[in-house]
Design a protein around this nucleic acid. Structure first.
Length: 189
DNA sequence: TATGAGATCAACT
DNA sequence: GTTGATCTCATAC
């Protein structure tokens, strides 16, 4: 997918990433859950300015920002908007379709539903580490394909944060069984 | 089903 | 010294 795709508001990008297919070395599947983080958002890593950790967020769109979560897991973001706007979309879950055997081995788990249902799980299944921090999405080992069919998208509050908890900036494929957590069916938060 | 602790590290105060 | 954009396992109900 071209860089133009990411040079838009985080929310448009987040919305369009649902149903888009993401592979790392041919392993992955359609994205079913993401969260948007904007630099004006107190919950974003880029809130409060550039630091060593979040430097990639301040760079050009279409690159990946990888960080260590709770000292144990990795989480991936796709940088959006314009260079310096420091906005990104956190990839939280996908539907495992390609490389099932590899993902099961990496996760030490057979339950398909739990292979990529959560940012830390997804990174373990796709073998994403800080080695990829700052890497461009339009080059190997990454493959990103726009969705080809319309999907029903749900929105709700983000998970695991303590600031700006009410902003409905978590987006997902409504009804998917591969979400890290279901969305409320009534559309309310 | 629900809640709680532990893992483990680097950024940031 | 404190705090997470988390996950797993154990224990309780």
């Amino acid at each position: 997918m071209a860089q133009d795709f990411f040079a838009r508001s985080v929310h448009e990008v987040a919305w369009d990433l649902i149903g888009a297919t993401f592979f790392v070395d041919g392993v992955g599947g359609p994205i079913v859950e993401v969260e948007a983080y904007h630099h004006t958002d107190p919950a974003a890593h880029s809130y409060g300015g550039q630091t060593a950790r979040n430097a990639v967020m301040f760079g050009p769109p279409g690159h990946v920002y990888v960080y260590r979560s709770y000292g144990v897991h990795w989480c991936v973001n796709f940088v959006c908007e314009a260079e310096g706007s420091a906005s990104a979309v956190l990839i939280r879950a996908l539907m495992p379709t390609e490389g099932l055997a590899v993902m099961r081995r990496r996760r030490g788990l057979s339950d398909e539903r739990l292979l990529c249902a959560g940012p830390g799980r997804l990174c373990e299944a796709l073998a994403i580490t800080s080695a990829y921090n700052g890497a461009p999405l339009d080059k190997a080992p990454f493959t990103l394909l726009a969705r080809t069919a319309p999907v029903e998208i749900a929105a709700g509050p983000r998970i695991g944060i303590s600031k700006a908890v009410d902003l409905p900036w978590r987006y997902g494929w409504a009804g998917s069984r591969f979400l890290s957590k279901p969305f409320r069916a009534d559309g309310k938060f």
